[in-house]
Design a protein around this nucleic acid. Structure first.
Lengths: 204, 204
DNA sequence: GTCTATAAACGGATAGAC
DNA sequence: GTCTATCCGTTTATAGAC
């Protein structure tokens, strides 16, 4: 099941395939070596170009980072938030959010990792924008937890800390999961959902 | 309750106070801007010195990173692993590991964050060494989970994934916890332990 | 132990040819 | 769309004075 078209995710507004490869490679390098540790030269070399050649495709290193984050954030809103908005039951909604979030994490690992861990390197307006969108997503998850608490189905005291723990567990997957290895995606998804729901919900 | 003397943690072998300040400041900057994004000039400025002045205290930027990680790793082994080795019951041991780990995380936040997230920037021999020590700690935690499974007290299927989720939850705290804010350290410790134990243990 | 000065390399980014 | 050549600021690191 495709969550979203892979090309679209990393495409620039012009939507060219070459750009997709550039941004994907850049994301991979940034995850491996950090934004500051990844030079334009590194990226150029990885896609088989010179620095100047690369600059034909990008505006600046900073803008690259912004574009990667924008497209991933778009995807999260499109494939995680939108499809779950209409789920009335908070437990079911939270389960679905987690399922889609983990699936996206695994499919678009590097770019999502950049979004999660390199926001500090964004500058000025772009930074504010991405930070706000990330906060909004956090709020969206927290809202489900709040509804669970209001319904008396939450086992824990702190809604905020609970939300943090849920998201930490999910984000952590990006650090240890490697494709083509033992646990299949679906196992990871299911066991993560079980882990979290057992942790936060009253036994039914 | 002091986990370990703060000066000792970041002291160089010579054990001078000035060095402690330098390494602590360096760790803070590296957490904020990443290893690659933090220059020797930044660190020098933050401690009120020139770059050359700073080089009297350090061998190289790379060596700084290695020293920070070594001392934090030493601390983890000393204040988390050693005091829990003799606890026979795996559940009690795991609880105590989590308690001490979270406490250390909060007390020595920046340096621990560097250990957790900047290992990729270590080079050659030092990198191998630190990576192995981190693996050993991971194994130590996983062993408690394995013993719980052998005793039939584990509710989950995968020991490895469970260990990852436990450590993700703990490490995540470093990303959202800010001192002098609402949840007191002890609340964080207790609720985190509850979160994890509910997630992984069969109801007793 | 801290400074000024400087070396040597690398960084992001641009101009202009093809 | 990719290249060579180049600009210029920054980076790590050292030499040597005080």
């Amino acid at each position: 099941m495709e969550i979203v078209d892979r090309t679209r995710l990393m495409a620039t507004p012009e939507g060219q395939a070459r750009n997709a490869e550039i941004y994907r490679t850049a994301a991979e390098l940034m995850v491996e070596k950090g934004f500051g540790g990844t030079s334009i030269g590194d990226i150029a070399q990885a896609v088989g170009m010179t620095k100047s050649g690369l600059y034909h495709h990008i505006a600046s290193k900073q803008d690259m980072l912004y574009k990667i984050m924008t497209y991933v954030m778009d995807s999260v809103e499109e494939v995680v938030v939108e499809p779950t908005r209409t789920i009335a039951d908070p437990e079911e909604r939270l389960r679905e959010i987690m399922r889609l979030h983990v699936n996206g994490l695994i499919k678009y690992g590097p770019a999502m990792s950049v979004l999660m861990w390199e926001v500090n390197h964004l500058e000025s307006a772009g930074r504010t924008e991405i930070v706000n969108r990330k906060k909004a997503y956090h709020q969206y998850v927290q809202f489900a937890v709040e509804e669970l608490e209001a319904a008396g189905r939450l086992q824990v005291q702190g809604v905020k800390m609970t939300t943090q723990h849920i998201l930490s567990t999910i984000r952590g997957i990006a650090r240890w999961y490697s494709p083509n290895k033992s646990p299949k995606v679906n196992e990871v998804v299911e066991e993560t959902i079980n882990f979290v729901t057992r942790a936060i919900l009253k036994p039914s």
